[in-house]
Each structure stands twice: as C-alpha cells, then as structure tokens.
Design a protein around this nucleic acid. Structure first.
Lengths: 391, 391
DNA sequence: CTTGAATACTCAAGCTAGTTGAGTTAAACG
DNA sequence: CGTTTAACTCAACTAGCTTGAGTATTCAAG
C-alpha cells in the first residue's frame, strides 16, 4: 500500500515507445485534431518517430484520420483525431450498500451506466457484483473485452489503519486485504484504486470543466468532504494514498473550532435541516428545498460560507492550483449558490492580478462524478506519460 | 513561469540512458554500496544494461569500486559506491541584503560555504555577486568547473503577481524578469530556482534527517512560515511555483482567527519578546534566552503550540506525508521544545497504529538549510529520474 | 502560366541502448 | 573435491529514434 518504498523502474525501448504513445495520444486529445509535424515540434521527437507511432495507433484503432487542413503554404496537414471506439475505460464505484458502474469511450463520453444494491459488503459478494457489472456493460454496449483499457475503482477510504477509523464510511472486512489484486483477479483488467475525491478530479479533467488543466484541486462533497489534487496531470495522493482528507481540518464556525466537514458537507446540511424538522434524504430533496427557498437551507448556506472560504484559502495557499473545482453529491444549484455567496480570501497566492479564469468553478460531471472519475483514471493513464517536464 | 502549460517531452534512446543513469545513481546512493545484479533486480533492467551504465559512470568518475562482498554463495558481489568527488552541486541563497553560497559533493557533504553582504539588490549587482561566489567556491576548493552539475538558487517568493505582495520579503526590481535565464547566463550552469522551504526540504532529503524518505513535508521557519512538499522524491510546487504558503492560512489563537505566521514564526517570537522589552535580533539571542528560560519566550512557546498543532494536522490530512520535518531560522532547542510540547491531533490520517517513525521531527541542516537545500536541488536532479512508478 | 519557396510527409540507412543466451569465474556447500 | 549457486562478461540480436535525401502539394511572385 505504501507509495513511498516503490522502486523506480528502468526504461527500455519498449517503455520508451509506450511513453511516446501516451504523449502522442495526449497531444491529439488536447488539440482535438492535429498533424504529425506539429506533434513532433511540440514534443521534440522527429517527425518520423511520430509518423511511426501514429501508423501504429491507426492500426490498433485508437486514432482516425480527420481530413486535411489547408490554408497555409506547403503540403496540407493530414490531421488525426481520437477514435472514440478505440478504447474504453470501465469505472466502478463501491459504496457500503451499492455498486455503480460506467463505461466511457476514449473521448470521455458515457456509453453505459448501471447501479445495483448490495445486500452485504463482504469482499466475495462485492467482487462478484463488480464482475457482473463488467459483463453487463460489455453485453449492453457490444464493446469487445479487448477494447477495455482498464478499470478504475472508487472505494471508501481512508486506506490502512489511520486515526480516522469508524468514520462510518469504511467497508468492514476490507481492511486487511489487497483490494487491487482481488479486483484485478475478478475483472481480468489492470485496476486503479482511488478515493472518490481523486477520481472525481480526474472526471473533470477527462470530460468535465478541467479539460486542459494540469494542476488543480477538486473539493468533493460526499458524506463528508474530500479533496482531490492534480499536479501536472497526475494525482498527488501522499505516502499512503490518504492525501486530501480536508474534512477533518479545524475551522472556526461561530467562534468555535470544529471539523470542517461538520459545517460543510451533505451530512451537515442534512443534520441542520433535521434539527429544523425537515427530512432531506437525497439530492432531489435538497434541490426541491432550494427551489422553494426553504429558510433553514438558506441559513445553512449562510453559515457554511465562512468556513468554506477558509478552506479554499488553505487549499490555494498550500497547492497554488490553477483553479479549485467543486462537485460531488450536492445539487448544482446549491454549489452555484455557495460559489456566488463566498467571499474568497484576499491573502492568497491565487489572488493574482493576471487571472483569466475564476478561482472557483463548479464541476460538470454531476452526481455520477466519482463513478465517471473511476473510468477517467484509466483514460488519464493512457493520455499522460509518467515523465514530468524538467524544471 | 507557469508549470502548467509545459509540453511533455518525448523520449529517445539518449533520454532513456539519462533516466537509467539517474536510477542507478539513486540506487547506489540509497544503498550506500551495492552490486550490479541487485540494481538490475530492483529496476527491472537487465544485468548487462546496468553493467554498461556502471562502466560509463566509473569512467566519468561518479562511481567508484567499493570492494567485494562475500558471505553468500556464488561469485562475490563487486560493489560500487558514490564517488564523492564525482560531481558537485552549487547552492546560492539570495536574500534582500546578503548572498550565501555552499558547494556540496555527491555525498551531500559541504565542501565550502561563504556569505557576503549586498549594498543593493538590483539584478545586475546580485548577478555579479552570485557569479563571484561561484568563482570563489571553485578557487578555494580546487574543484574543476566541469565537475559542477548545476546550481540551485533560493530566492524570496512568492513568484509572479499574487495576493500576497508587500510581504516585505520580495526583491524589488526582480518582479518582471526571468531569474532562471539571467542566472544561467551569469553562472554558465543549469539553474534550478526554488523558494526557501522547498530547498530546505531537499536539504533534509539529500544530507539530513529525511534520507531515504520520498514523501514528506518540511515546515520552514523563515521570516514567516513556509512549507516544502515532496511526493515521490519530487517537489510539489503548484501551478505557478507558489505552493506551500502555509503562513497565510487562518488559525485560532486565543479564540481569535489570525494568520498562522502571526503566531508561529521568527517575526512573531521577536515581536512578542519586543513587547516585553526584550530585543532578540538573531538566532543566537533566541538560543541564549531559551537557555536562560526567559519567561516571555516560554510564554510564546506556550501560545504557539496550539496553532502549531493545528497546522500539523492540516498538513497531515491534506498530504498524508511519511513525516513532517521542522527547520529553518530557529534555534534547534526551540524547535525541540515545540516538538515536545505539541499535542498532535488525533483526527489525522498520520495517526496510524503501525508507525515506526515519529510524526514530527527536527531537521538537521541547521541555519544554512536553505543554502544547502539549493545545492541539494542539483543532486536530487542527478539521483531522481522523472518517471514515477506506475500505480 | 511558370517557377520557386514553404511545408508535410516518406523512405532507407544508421545509431543508441536495452535484451538474450551462452559462457566464465569464484565462493560455499556437502 | 565435485557440485551448486550467483555475479558477471561477451557477442549477437532487436526495438525504436534520428538523419538526410527525396517527394508531394500548396501558395506566392514574376
């Protein structure tokens, strides 16, 4: 589980090609449609190398021709674009009482999604259910098994033994086992396990509002509050995979220090409404209450704004992201309200004069964000080489 | 300046070799003395490849033979170790009124250090002074110019236009220029520019208490308070290089929300002492006062402990580091006092049952930590390939 | 309309660096 | 003292990038 004692791998010709393929695919994706010469210029590779790689990728269907672009001098550029059916990412979200799945194509479009209830969450039951989701997704869409590049799996964290046990979200019976290995056996696919916040961040990068961004933070409203961090297109997940547990940091609410997620989270709004005799079970209830301008809800938004602003300030000053994105299990209208209501701190490295984007944005992946994000983990892998640019 | 819009480079055979050299050097460094077969096993490369690389590195002096290790069966291992004189890193720290420099060898040992005052800090004056430091370091040590692998430079941040202008630490006249380019021209070396906290973190990794750690946080007491973050041996520096500005986050001190660095920093302790009629100008004054158990100083330590604990909790929950290290311009005795006095938060992902290391440690690079860290940036570059291990 | 410049791309040869498999050396075991 | 084990070397092979010459297609100028 520890990310810290991993040995750095050596590189041979095969890995070189794999890296360059990822780089080419990432360039094509970023550009929409692009020619070989331009990729070569941007990457420092020779045109010939890019040409060979593109020939390969046409052969295995990941790219397709996209017409010639004329207008300048010289030979018109033969452009290439991502072939949507060239590969798929399977996303699985395991919750204590349900399993969700989504299948997305290479462009990030959702081709299938499904949900089943769990009667118990013993590993054996869950693994069987997960495998059934895969079979169903392939069957319903007609996608061949070999086209699936891998599976992303979102599970309740935190992973390993930490000081935040019994937060209610962990899966019993999953503490002392290796989820990745078991899932790979069950799915016969490469598996990437992440928490909901990290996966959701990836969903925004692959098919949401963060397309083209490499370094940003995603604030995830789940039961509590989580933070997904991307730097240079890669997740920052800490030494043991538990980075981003922002819900537990102390903030001041009405002069009293409390945990952030006790005043900014879905549980907190539900508790507040409950105290006012309102039973809001799900997102639809919340949406309805907001549409009705229910006073207790507006009051909650009011009290949440201040600690929320403090949290944004902390994120900005610690990570210096391009933008902070909000999403998760909270109705869009409420998130928009929060974004508009919040007064962002002036003392922040993100309070730059030359900004072109807002500091705060709402994610566009909706309530399926974590499941889509799980699938997006797979695509990100295909698009983003492991080599960072040198400083 | 923006780290975010950099194009990922392609890889060719030459870059492959460069990566593998870094990997080999890193393995040797981590092990102290090691044979080829072991490196090959750990990296997945063939023995032959490792053999060729080691032959190269013996030829250019970065490695040296380190006797055979017998004991097992089979041919005794021919071991190799880092050759201290095989390369050097130059560290430069630019402050508003002074320039510091240090030259460290491949094992991280300091071979030379020097300090000069600045009469003004216009770029021209500073660049000339910096160049003079290099000449002097080479002259005094007899190190050849070609053995210097690069220069790390620490400058007051934050970089670019942010909401934290006029913090008093920025260099006037350096806002709209490209420091890295100018420094490379002045030094004729590859230059790595970082802030003090990031560089100090690197000092601990290369020659301090964080050797062997890949993912940790370094809390730096400068004028204010900064945070250096390493994940997988690489700095996390955000989209614009300003990550880690932890001094500006709000905490509660005596029931009132204030900026963290207004109660935990050197300026804060000096202000507190000043209010009690004590003039503490430098670290020696503070050390003396602490040795005398001066009540105002103990009182400051007392009030600082609580916000300090909150800060540690935030760092741990957001980054999940292996450890948090304390250092910078604060006497060791005071840091040790803080470490012993602080009650670390229970609600933290770092509060693990299976810990073998303490959650909080003091750095061992002393007051030169940022300058040494600047030099360490160069060595880290030589030891740490850019490819992350795959998840 | 012709010619030349610009640009994208292909072909074929060459180079770098990693892999593979057979062979050599030296220590430890029985 | 032979056998086993492990590290290492040699030489042939292979993957994949680069280089340089050549081709195709468009635009612009005369």
């Amino acid at each position: 589980m520890s990310a810290s004692h991993r040995q750095i791998p050596g590189v041979n010709a095969e890995r070189t090609r794999s890296h360059n393929r990822q780089m080419v695919l990432g360039s094509v994706r970023a550009a929409g449609a692009i020619g070989r010469a331009e990729i070569a210029r941007a990457s420092g590779l020779s045109t010939q190398a890019v040409s060979n790689i593109i020939a390969d990728m046409l052969a295995d269907g990941m790219l397709r021709e996209h017409g010639r672009r004329t207008g300048g001098r010289g030979l018109p550029v033969q452009q290439y674009a991502i072939n949507p059916t060239g590969g798929y990412g399977l996303g699985i979200e395991i919750r204590p009482n349900a399993v969700f799945s989504a299948l997305i194509d290479l462009t990030g479009a959702t081709k299938h999604s499904h949900r089943t209830e769990l009667t118990n969450n013993q590993p054996k039951t869950v693994l069987a259910e997960v495998a059934a989701h895969k079979v169903r997704a392939l069957h319903d869409t007609g996608v061949r098994e070999t086209s699936v590049l891998g599976a992303g799996v979102v599970m309740p964290g935190p992973f390993g033994a930490t000081g935040i046990q019994n937060s209610g979200s962990d899966l019993p019976g999953w503490q002392d086992i290796d989820p990745q290995g078991l899932l790979e056996d069950a799915l016969h696919l490469p598996v990437f396990v992440e928490n909901d916040a990290n996966a959701s961040a990836m969903a925004e990068r692959i098919s949401g509002v963060a397309q083209g961004l490499e370094t940003f933070a995603f604030l995830y409203f789940g039961q509590g509050l989580g933070l997904g961090l991307l730097q240079g297109g890669r997740l920052v997940s800490g030494a043991f995979g538990n980075a981003g547990e922002i819900g537990h940091i102390p903030v001041i609410a009405q002069g009293v220090p409390v945990a952030l997620e006790s005043c900014v989270s879905r549980l907190s709004v539900q508790a507040h409404l409950c105290a006012h005799g309102i039973d809001a079970r799900d997102m639809d209830d919340l949406s309805r209450l907001y549409a009705q301008s229910a006073p207790p809800l507006l009051q909650w938004l009011d009290t949440a704004a201040q600690p929320f602003s403090a949290a944004i300030g902390i994120i900005e000053n610690l990570f210096d992201p391009q933008v902070v994105i909000l999403g998760g299990a909270m109705p869009d209208a409420l998130l928009d309200h929060l974004i508009n209501a919040v007064r962002l701190p002036d003392r922040s490295v993100s309070n730059r004069a030359d900004r072109t984007q807002p500091r705060l944005m709402r994610g566009t992946s909706g309530r399926m964000t974590a499941t889509l994000g799980a699938a997006a983990l797979v695509l990100n892998q295909a698009f983003t080489p492991m080599i960072a640019a040198s400083r």
